[in-house]
């Protein structure tokens, strides 16, 4: 059994007086797709953001691809291996889609202009919008922006992809196009941690579903067991709220 690519051990994090994470431990294996669900304020986004140190944490350890995230200087090295997709896309507003994909390749990966552009074009084709290369973010729909954002993260050849509620800011008719891209990425064997309440995606693509509440992991199981036979009372209560149909 190889080492898990992400090892989280007893991580604690507080915002002022609020304890966002109260001792979370989680291992993710290479190629695994883990979906994290939980009520708002449960710490799921915070956990994700700790994995590439967009948030700092007070206690515990996180090891990503053999590198320990501490306060020393390897943070940019880890961020190169971990891509993140945000709820609000965060595309660079002053650049075209193509330039969005090329910028970090050029200055972080030090690729030539030709190489970066080739990779960018290929990725835009992969997420289904090669014709939008010259468009600025404001000229794209939400779904298109999020697909560009996924492509931008992939352009760095990350080993792990984090998705922080990638479809929460989208109009309903655009959710599918983003989930399709994510599902095909999962099929290719990408290691993914996804904070999302898209149960269809969890069932189709995840190996594991994790339920978090009040800064703790309450339950984890395969999607089938998680949705059909939740063990914890709190999980059942939560599922009854989001599966309201």
């Amino acid at each position: 059994m190889p080492e898990p690519i992400v090892q989280i051990k007893d991580v604690k994090k507080r915002f002022g007086r609020v304890e966002a994470l109260r001792g979370v431990s989680l291992d993710v294996n290479e190629g695994e797709v883990v979906v994290i669900v939980g009520p708002s304020g449960s710490g799921k986004s915070t956990l994700l953001r700790c994995i590439n140190r967009l948030e700092e944490y007070e206690e515990g350890t996180i090891i990503v691809d053999g590198m320990t995230l501490d306060n020393t200087s390897n943070i940019n090295a880890i961020r190169r291996e971990v891509g993140i997709v945000f709820q609000s896309f965060n595309l660079f507003a002053h650049l075209t889609a193509l330039q969005n994909l090329m910028l970090a390749q050029r200055i972080v990966r030090k690729r030539s202009r030709e190489e970066a552009e080739k990779i960018a074009q290929a990725l835009l084709a992969k997420v289904g919008i090669p014709e939008k290369a010259k468009a600025h973010p404001a000229q794209l729909s939400g779904g298109q922006q999020q697909r560009v954002a996924i492509a931008r993260a992939l352009a760095m050849n990350p080993k792990i992809m984090l998705f922080d509620e990638p479809t929460s800011a989208l109009d309903p008719e655009m959710i599918k196009e983003v989930l399709d891209v994510m599902t095909s990425l999962a099929k290719e064997g990408m290691t993914m941690l996804v904070v999302s309440h898209e149960m269809g995606f969890a069932r189709a693509a995840a190996q594991r579903v994790i339920f978090m509440d009040e800064g703790l992991i309450i339950e984890q199981a395969t999607p089938h067991d998680f949705f059909e036979n939740p063990k914890e009372e709190r999980t059942r209560l939560f599922l009854s709220k989001i599966l309201h149909l």
């Binding site: 590439n52 891509g83 945000f86 965060n90 595309l91 660079f92 200055i107």
Partner: peptide
């Protein structure tokens, strides 16, 4: 400039200086 712009740049491995120069200051 929205905070997410700096975060996105940093999450791609850019240093604070690179993110300032290529992402935040132009906007």
């Amino acid at each position: 400039v929205p905070k997410g712009q700096m975060e996105a740049a940093r999450s791609l491995g850019m240093s604070h200086f690179q993110a300032m120069r290529h992402v935040v200051l132009p906007q």
